[in-house]
Computed example of a mutant assay.
Amino acid sequence: MIQIAVFSDVHGNLPALDSVLEDIEKRGIRQKFCLGDLVDFAPWGNEVTEKIKDLNIPCLMGNHDERIAFDIPVVPLSKHTEEETFARFVAIDHSKKYITESNKKFLSELPFHLQLNYKIGEKHWNIQLVHSSLSSNDTYLYESESDEVFIKMLEESRSDVIVMGHTHLSFKKQFENNSWALNCGSVGRSKEENRLASYLILTLDEEKIIPEIIQLSYPLDETARRIEESEIPDYYASFLRNEQVSMS
Results as ranks from 00 to 15, higher is better:
Val20Glu: 00
Phe112Gln: 05
Glu66Cys: 04
His131Ala: 03
Lys123Cys: 03
Ser19Asp: 07
Arg30Trp: 00
His64Cys: 01
Lys53Met: 14
Phe41Cys: 01
Leu77Tyr: 11
Glu122Ala: 13
Phe33Pro: 03
Lys51Met: 13
Ala16Gly: 04
Ile127Cys: 10
His113Lys: 14
Gly62Gln: 09
Tyr98Trp: 13
Arg88Leu: 08
Phe86Met: 11
Ala42Tyr: 01
Phe70Ala: 00
Ala69Trp: 02
Thr85Met: 07
Trp125Ser: 10
Met61Ser: 07
His94Ala: 05
Val74Tyr: 12
Thr139Ser: 11
Glu122Ser: 15
Glu109Trp: 01
Leu55Thr: 07
Lys32Ile: 15
Pro111Asn: 10
Lys51Phe: 01
Gly62Phe: 06
Ala69Ser: 05
Asp138Met: 08
Lys96Ala: 08
Glu83Thr: 13
Tyr118Thr: 01
Ser95Ala: 15
Glu47Trp: 08
Arg88Ala: 05
Gly45Arg: 01
Ala87Val: 00
Lys79His: 11
Leu38His: 02
Ile72Gln: 06
Val75Met: 10
Leu77Asp: 00
Ile72Phe: 08
Ile99Ser: 06
Thr139Asn: 02
Thr81Cys: 06
Val74Glu: 13
Glu101Arg: 14
Ile68Val: 15
Cys59Val: 11
Lys119Thr: 14
Glu84Asp: 00
Gly36Asp: 06
Cys34Arg: 01
Lys79Ile: 13
Arg88Cys: 05
Gly28Trp: 05
Phe112Arg: 12
Gly28Ile: 06
Gly62Asp: 04
Trp125His: 12
Val74Ala: 02
Arg30Cys: 09
Ser132Trp: 04
Ser133Cys: 13
Glu83Arg: 09
Met61Leu: 09
Gln115Ile: 14
Lys79Trp: 11
Pro111Phe: 12
Gly121Asp: 12
Ile99Met: 13
Tyr98Pro: 00
Lys123Ala: 06
Asn137Arg: 08
Leu35His: 06
